[in-house]
C-alpha cells in the first residue's frame, strides 16, 4: 500500500493578494502584476535584487515559494501550469517582430522556458534537489500526489514543494504547497480539489 503524505503549508496568489495557509499576508491595489509583484517584494522584505530581472512567471513562483521554503533543505520542486512560458515567449517575440528594428533581448530570451522559475527558486534557497515543471490543461490534482509521493518514497527528497503557477498577460494565479511526512491534510486528489 502506498504511504500517505501530508500537506504542511500552502500559499495562494491571485487578484492582488497573497494568502498563507488561508490568511492574507499581503494585498495591493495595483493595476498590473508587475506593480503588485514589486510592492509584494518590498513588503515581504525579500532583499534579493535579482528578483527585478526575472520574468513574470518567475516572480510569481518566487513570491509564492518565499514563505514555504527552508534554505539548503532537501526539498524537491514539482511545478506545473497551463500556459508554459507563453507570456514571456510573446514578450520576446515583440523584440524580434520588426525587421527594421530587430534587437532580440538576451535578458528576455533566457526566460523562454517555464522551468527557469524553478532554477531561480533553487538558486535563492540553495536547493540542489530534484525539480520538474509540467504543462497541463488544468490543475493536476491526481498527478501531484502521485509524483510527490514517488519522490519522497524513493528517497529523492525529504519534502516536495508542489505548485501551480499560471501566468498569461494580466491573468495570474499561484497555488503552491509543501508536502512531507506530517501536515494538516492528506496529500490526495480530493483534498487538492477542495483547496484549489
Amino acid at each position: 500500500m502506498n504511504k500517505t503524505f501530508y500537506i504542511q503549508d500552502y500559499c495562494e496568489i491571485r487578484d492582488g493578494e497573497i494568502r498563507l495557509n488561508g490568511e492574507n499576508i499581503f494585498s495591493a491595489g495595483e493595476d498590473t502584476f508587475s506593480g503588485f509583484a514589486k510592492k509584494a517584494y518590498q513588503d515581504l522584505d525579500l532583499a534579493y535584487p535579482k528578483f527585478f530581472k526575472m520574468d513574470k512567471l518567475s516572480k510569481l513562483a518566487f513570491l509564492a515559494a518565499s514563505r514555504l521554503l527552508t534554505p539548503e533543505s532537501n526539498t524537491a520542486l514539482v511545478f506545473a501550469n497551463r500556459s508554459s512560458s507563453l507570456d514571456t515567449d510573446l514578450a520576446y517575440q515583440q523584440t524580434i517582430r520588426d525587421k527594421a528594428a530587430w534587437y532580440p533581448s538576451p535578458a528576455v530570451f533566457v526566460y523562454t522556458l517555464p522551468n527557469i522559475c524553478l532554477g531561480e527558486i533553487s538558486i535563492k534557497y540553495k536547493l540542489y534537489s530534484e525539480n520538474s515543471f509540467f504543462v497541463f490543461e488544468n490543475f493536476p490534482a491526481a498527478f501531484f500526489p502521485a509524483y510527490a509521493g514517488l519522490l519522497i518514497s524513493t528517497g529523492k527528497a525529504e519534502e516536495v514543494l508542489c505548485g501551480w503557477v499560471e501566468m498569461l498577460g494580466e491573468e495570474y494565479r499561484a497555488f503552491v504547497y509543501k508536502v512531507g511526512n506530517k501536515g494538516f491534510a492528506e496529500h490526495n486528489e480530493q483534498n487538492l480539489n477542495r483547496m484549489i
Binding site: A101, Y103, P104, S105, P106
Partner: peptide, 13 residues
Amino acid sequence: SIDALELIVMLDK
C-alpha cells in the same frame, strides 16, 4: 554575462 549581452544590444539599438 546576460547583462553584458544586453549592453551589446543597447550599443547597437
